[in-house]
Design a protein around this nucleic acid. Structure first.
Lengths: 312, 312
DNA sequence: TTGTAAGCGTTATCAG
DNA sequence: CTGATAACGCTTACAA
């Protein structure tokens, strides 16, 4: 017991005793066993993070930020890939719970009813990220995809565009942004939109393909809206190959403000969200709540900004 | 005990009993406690993965592959960021060991002596990745950065280049590739090289900056070699801004074969390594060894291929 | 400031 | 095929 105290809370142990313990630790190569510690204390110092995908330009910065913030606070991160369906997420979280994490980060706000029950039953702090709702399971850090869609719609209508093509992936959150766009442009007389749906995750090749598909029927577009900057860049590459001037003939709009968006030629008009802040805030809120501090605002809308550049 | 068996190895329990157990599990909302299980069985079903950085175009595909392979085999992944110094890695792995992972994936082959001792003492399976050595701590999946450097050097000399500029980050593995390049080009009469060192991780802006720095002294180059495709793209953007024709005036060479490399204009000549295979193999080898199967070849060189495109 | 006893929720082992 | 018992290595709660 004295060793346990010397290691975890040396202040309450006589300095001389602490030294003796440390010496013994060195001499024997002792490594604490957090499985045993977690079992006894019911605190695992483990945070489970569930994302649809790791190698994704969007989530990866958030994951990095979570990891950094957690490490600084003495937690480890259990990272799980859930794919893009609620069912796979539910299955994965169920097994995750057997690790007795002190908290969970979930991507998105849509979960199966069973998962919700499971999670609320477990009574551990939860942060949902990358989306927005007034009724999260527990806490939330994100932004409104519909608002972003609205902003994109207004922006492009304001520029006088009316013949829209969407190059879009079908993941849950992209769907919300699309809805936001349609809500705005369908109110505008004479505007219309066509879609090229591409698989998720997005690549440049899929962007090129998307534009090709849109143009295949001989239809005419004045603005292409993409569900990510990667697709937008692909669209611009295809446009260049076809001799379509961007933005003169064809405006192109992205989402994400990835590194290359500012440096492409033409640079990509897009929507920026602070992906790092999502992670930092989520981790911090979780840690605070775990440690019994009150979290004043459990719902954080980090907002977004539309970045006007050359492509639209 | 019967419950434990019914859950973990139902075959050895009477079907009727298994059903009774499952029913009770459902009725009570029972969730197993793997902390207790791991403590008792000395198997945590946990793999620790240590990378210098998560939000890195190179490692992220490997991490995804590790995660996928581990999930398929019933393991969870503890993901830790170690930065680019051996000291921070040692510190992080030391705390990681207290989770009693069944195996560890380490990025790189250079570790502090204390860490090596710690790891060998722990006698758990280890895979080092993203580098090559005949003497890994345990197992290894990677490739030779020096060989890649050699290949780049030979390729560019073969194209008749002799005035080299390097836009380079200073991480450990990039340093090896640089050495490989110098070993080749310094043997060539009349060739010379200058370097622009940029911080890690690489961005397009740093690539642009790198080329600007190289050109600042009025020196003349016929080939720019970059430690990553991202830098190469940045260099090409800067070259375009300065009216330097790529590859006519200036050849540009990257590393990684990231998605955009094939789609840039001009497309980027680069070196491809199978980042996914590194992860899949590493996870598979670890799992096999943990489960007592023999791993016939503990050192896997996944090789590389130089992809000739337009930029060089 | 340090020590004692009990227990955290599993699994290994052996017995039936 | 099922059950009893004793760990696993720590922390809580209380005592000294």
């Amino acid at each position: 017991m004295t060793v346990s105290r010397a290691l975890n809370n040396p202040k309450i142990v006589r300095a001389e005793t602490v030294n003796k313990v440390m010496e013994a630790v060195r001499a024997t190569g002792y490594i604490p066993n957090m499985l045993a510690g977690g079992l006894a204390s019911r605190r695992s110092k483990l945070i489970a993070v569930v994302v649809p995908q790791i190698n994704n330009n969007m989530f990866v910065d958030t994951i990095q930020a979570i990891s950094d913030e957690l490490a600084a606070r003495g937690y480890h991160m259990l990272l799980c890939v859930a794919g893009d369906t609620n069912e796979s997420e539910a299955e994965i979280v169920a097994t995750l719970l057997s690790r007795r994490p002190d908290g969970i980060v979930l991507t998105g706000i849509h979960h199966t009813p069973e998962l919700k029950r499971l999670l609320l039953n477990a009574t551990i702090p939860i942060v949902e990220i990358w989306d927005l709702t007034p009724t999260p399971l527990d806490m939330l850090v994100g932004f409104s995809h519909e608002s972003i869609g609205n902003a994109i719609g207004h922006y492009l209508l304001g520029k006088g565009h009316s013949r829209f093509g969407l190059v879009w992936t079908e993941d849950a959150r992209a769907g919300l942004r699309k809805k936001g766009i349609y809500d705005v442009i369908q109110k505008q007389q004479g505007s219309h939109a066509r879609e090229a749906i591409v698989p998720w995750p997005a690549t440049l090749a899929l962007g090129r393909q998307g534009l090709s598909d849109l143009l295949a029927n001989g239809e005419d577009f004045d603005a292409i809206i993409c569900s990510s900057d990667t697709l937008a860049q692909g669209v611009m590459i295809e446009a260049a190959a076809r001799g379509l001037a961007v933005p003169k003939t064809l405006a192109v709009m992205g989402f994400g403000d990835l590194d290359f968006a500012a440096h492409c030629t033409p640079s990509i008009t897009t929507v920026r969200v602070d992906r790092w802040k999502i992670g930092t805030d989520a981790a911090a809120m979780l840690a605070e709540k775990i440690e019994g501090k009150s979290v004043p605002s459990p719902i954080v809308d980090i907002g977004f900004s539309l970045i006007e550049r050359e492509s639209a």
